[in-house]
Design a protein around this nucleic acid. Structure first.
Length: 312
RNA sequence: AGGGCAAUAGCUCAAUUGGCAGAGCAUCGGUCUCCAAAACCGAAGGUUGUGGGUUCAAGUCCCUCUUGCCCUG
């Protein structure tokens, strides 16, 4: 009763999710979209995130878009609760939730068995200060002295993970045991669809999309958000394109470089998404240029969105 | 036409007095439990524009040609 639609950026997930929702509606089965994307949550980040406009949504209800200000920090743990609540809400109303996500960790945190240890801004701030002052080697050495097992699993140069491990140890008193869970659905009735696009096509699409974003006023959007604290948003300020345009505004790079780096960064992002999704054997892959794409997706997901329609 | 400067990885550039041709980006692969559009790790990639010469040894010095840029007519 829950449909997941995943795939790399610019693969056409949003478009397919809308057509799939319409397909359900045509069959007398209401469906709504639940966004599982770390950047679509931000109000005002529209052009650069390729967020579907209200008009494009065509009356299909979308959950978890435009729920945060740009200065606020999006986190997986918060998102997990909100998304699970949105899915439960849909199901209680007899609506098929179509979860659309490019952030693999977000998607897995929703449907798989994740429980995140606590966090504390004060503890974290101290650790981050130490990281900046003493360097990653010192922090990793400390982690190694109190929790050798997790120190062995975390690459020393990855200061961010070292900080997180030390934070959890400080808050729980125990070792940092967090590990990716098995790929097994915690929620019942989940069916996962993946949009498959070959690399050359995807690369070309990304280039075209960045060109289109620039033409649509991406730079103005970033300028406006910069007036509203975009630089203070630890998550939002790192979004592809936004980060590069801010660097251009700050005189660190040229506009041409900002644009080029946005394309390169987006391609790299797409590759990382691939590495998450390709190894997930639960995904039913659909070819992006299949002329019967919507029907195939509908057939695999099942008339009730419970996967019972699959089998070909 | 004459004079000067340049030519090194896909791109931008390093390489001490001649002494094992490197880096950043791009490309390819990988990691992943609270900033994840993040953070991090690894790999491949070269007949140093051409042809000769000097030398134990040439990206480096000498000559030829090619190409590009600048200056002067």
């Amino acid at each position: 009763m829950t449909v997941l639609l995943v795939g790399p950026t610019a693969s056409g997930k949003s478009g397919l999710s809308l057509r799939l929702a319409e397909r359900y509606r045509a069959a007398g089965q209401p469906a709504e979209v639940v966004s599982a994307d770390s950047m679509l949550v931000y109000r005002g980040m529209d052009i650069g995130t390729a967020k579907p406009t209200v008009a494009e949504r065509g009356g299909v209800v979308h959950h978890l878009m435009d729920i945060l200000d740009v200065q606020q920090t999006a986190t997986v743990a918060d998102f997990q609760l909100l998304a699970r609540a949105a899915i439960a809400d849909c199901r209680s109303r007899g609506v098929v939730p179509i979860v659309v996500g490019g952030s693999a960790l977000y998607v897995r945190a929703i449907v798989d068995d994740f429980s995140f240890p606590a966090t504390d801004p004060a503890v974290r701030a101290v650790l981050e200060e130490e990281l900046a002052r003493d360097g990653w080697a010192a922090l990793h050495a400390r982690l190694d002295s109190i929790d050798p097992a997790s120190a062995a699993r975390i690459e020393p140069a990855n200061g961010r993970r070292v900080v997180r491990a030390l934070e959890v140890i400080a808050l729980t008193g125990g070792p940092y045991v967090a590990e990716l869970p098995d790929r097994r659905y915690l929620l019942p009735g989940v069916i996962q669809l993946g949009l498959d696009v070959d690399r050359p096509t995807l690369d070309a699409r990304i280039q075209a999309r960045v060109d289109a974003m620039w033409a649509a006023g991406f730079v103005d959007e970033v300028a406006a958000l910069a007036e509203h604290g975009l630089r203070d948003g630890v998550t939002a300020s790192r979004a592809l394109g936004y980060r590069q345009i801010l660097r251009w505004f700050d005189g660190e790079i040229t506009e041409v470089e900002a644009r080029e780096q946005t394309v390169f960064g987006t391609r790299r992002f797409a590759r990382r998404q691939d590495s998450w999704f390709r190894k997930d054997e639960r995904i039913h892959w659909l070819n992006h240029d299949d002329p019967q794409l919507v029907e195939r997706a509908y057939a695999v997901a099942g008339p009730l969105g419970d996967g019972v329609g699959m089998g070909d």
